[in-house]
């Protein structure tokens, strides 16, 4: 038996076929949706996301030109914008939301799903790592940041000429990759696989 994580309905814990979707008859929450090669795809996407994040942090993000001067701003500069004065604590929060938490999530997912994709036994503390990855999910805000950039561009447009740097496009790609990756995941399937591999 299995209990629906959302409404607590008791359901028969049947094996869900590849490509099928099992959802709760009471509340409609998707319980399991295994897809062929899902684990491998998540790993590839998480790796791609990590590389894109590195590019996004170190390349110039936005370029602002006014009165013959050009100012480049990287993601790091954006984070540091709050570094002085009363708003200093926000620096840490910003760095966490945009860079640190997403990176931690990617690393945790790689650690948990890497051995799974090759059919190996789970790594040590894989359960804690996956719990961490799931707990961080709402706090990794890369896609919100992208919309923020768009709004900022409009606000500053009257003041100076703004162009997007390579890091911006890396970041957009990162968001797409992250959304794709999260759509492949079905939490219950990962837990069941981890559990089965651990005991086998």
């Amino acid at each position: 038996m299995i209990a629906c994580p959302a409404c607590d309905a008791l359901l028969v814990d049947r094996d869900v076929a590849m490509g099928d979707t099992a959802s709760c008859p009471r509340c409609g929450t998707v319980i399991e949706a295994p897809r062929p090669l899902a684990m491998t795809r998540i790993i590839m996407l998480a790796l791609a996301a990590l590389i894109l994040m590195i590019a996004a942090v170190f390349f110039p993000f936005l370029e602002l030109g006014a009165a013959g001067m050009v100012r480049r701003s990287s993601l790091l500069d954006t984070v540091m914008a709050f570094a002085t004065g009363l708003t200093a604590p926000l620096t840490i929060a910003m760095a966490a939301l945009i860079v640190i938490l997403p990176v931690t999530r990617f690393l945790a997912l790689l650690y948990v799903l890497g051995p799974m994709a090759f059919g190996w036994r789970p790594a040590r503390h894989a359960a804690s790592a996956f719990r961490l990855a799931e707990a961080l999910r709402p706090w990794a805000m890369a896609e919100v940041f992208i919309v923020g950039v768009a709004v900022a561009l409009v606000k500053v447009a009257g003041l100076a000429h703004v162009s997007l740097g390579p890091a911006f496009w890396a970041f957009v790609a990162l968001v797409i990759v992250t959304v794709l990756k999260d759509n492949f995941m079905s939490r219950v399937t990962v837990w069941k696989t981890l559990d089965a591999r651990r005991t086998s």
Binding site: A67, S73, F82, T87, L90, L97, M141, A152, V156, L159
Partner: peptide
Amino acid sequence: MIDVFVVAILSSLVRLDFAATITPGI
């Protein structure tokens, strides 16, 4: 969180070397 990010981006872009400066508020 959008507006917080907007403020951060604006303040990092528009600094002293321009005619205008934007600083985040409390």
